[in-house]
Design a protein around this nucleic acid. Structure first.
Lengths: 206, 206
DNA sequence: GCAGAAGTTTGCCAATTGCGCAAGATGGTC
DNA sequence: GACCATCTTGCGCAATTGGCAAACTTCTGC
């Protein structure tokens, strides 16, 4: 998810990327999507407008990239796990842990972005694309770990889809309920539990 | 998925929408995304350029909308099913059937669009958004059928995510393998089977 | 059927954006 | 410290976006 090179150059690039994304997020939060121009974002992020498009194709994409990434952390943590564990199990724990480790600020941005993309449908494709990219990344790792092929075998893609699905659904529910932070890991655990049970019927009907 | 009104007005709108989407798809297939302008698409669809943006926000979104929708058919079929069936089971069958019923032409468009969105990353967000919208629609129906709330309970969203996941993964694998049409329903069945088994480990390792 | 309401299409137009190109700046390498 | 690769930026043009109001089409009630 994060560029993998390690030099100063990569770091700067990453910083610029975050600066742009955060500027975009903040501005859109303040003034509404339609009242924010790329020029403004560029100004706030101390880059030229031309540079903006080296990083993002549009405002929406930038906004959605705001907040330090959860995804890359999960992927790295996955590589630490023993290869013989059932991947869905490993990932369930990793995702729950990753979410638990987020700062309040980070969680607030997650929630904020979700609310924004509900308010502005134009953002929704970019939000979806982020999860999709994450899903692909997970799929690749699972494939590597299990000796399967992402493009050919169904297994790695399915595991990846199920994991991101659980994450999306739990976060959506958490944001909707406006629940306190402790609730999110619980919801996630619950989601993975339901998945493991095969989703026969709605769990506790309230 | 399809506009729900029934008058002549709705029908025309739907036709216009399809005409635009098909024109966009065809042009992009022929000339490549970067060499197609909205003006051209509008011309080929017999509308004014201005009208294009009443339907789609950009070329990419239009291309991805091409081909008659599978999704709405699945949703309608779901409503015919007895409410007491496990939803994941109903949906598994419905999706397999829906795919089996597609014409060769329709399947070709599905495959073509997927290939295009691999070739042009700018299309990918819109492809993802389509599945996301489908997922939401499924979630709503499941919620209605099971007396749960999509926004609150995890169950309906999880079922929906799993279903679209299976569909996406199976289609991707099918397209990648360049397999004959009979293979797609088989892959889908397999995907739902693996899901039902809880994805413990890769099924047949080839 | 027909008059008025409601919704769509279109042209016009200004502001914004997308992006190729080439020059300058900056980090990486030996 | 010299050379190379990469990133940033300004310039400029073509494409796109989106508000507005006029012309048209469909819908509704009578």
């Amino acid at each position: 998810m994060t560029g993998s090179g390690t030099g100063l150059r990569e770091i700067k690039k990453q910083l610029t990327r975050e600066a742009i994304a955060d500027a975009a997020y903040q501005l859109v939060l303040d003034k509404g999507l339609e009242n924010v121009t790329i020029d403004e974002i560029a100004q706030l992020a101390f880059i030229s407008p031309r540079t903006f498009s080296n990083y993002f194709s549009c405002k929406e994409e930038a906004v959605v990239a705001a907040g330090s990434p959860v995804f890359s952390g999960i992927l790295e943590a996955l590589d630490e796990r023993p290869t013989d564990e059932p991947p869905l199990h490993s990932l369930g724990e990793l995702v729950v842990d990753a979410v638990r480790d987020r700062t309040d600020e980070q969680l607030a941005v997650t929630a904020g972005k979700l609310r924004l993309s509900q308010r502005y449908p134009a953002m929704q494709p970019y939000e979806a694309a982020r999860y999709d990219a994450f899903e692909t990344a997970i799929g690749e790792r699972i494939a590597a770990r299990t000796g399967t092929e992402l493009a050919t075998d169904l297994y790695p893609g399915l595991v990846a889809a199920v994991v991101t699905g659980a994450l999306r659904v739990a976060v959506a529910s958490w944001v909707h309920a406006d629940a306190p932070r402790e609730r999110l890991p619980e919801l996630l655990t619950e989601a993975f539990q339901e998945l493991a049970d095969g989703l026969p019927l709605p769990a506790a009907s309230r």
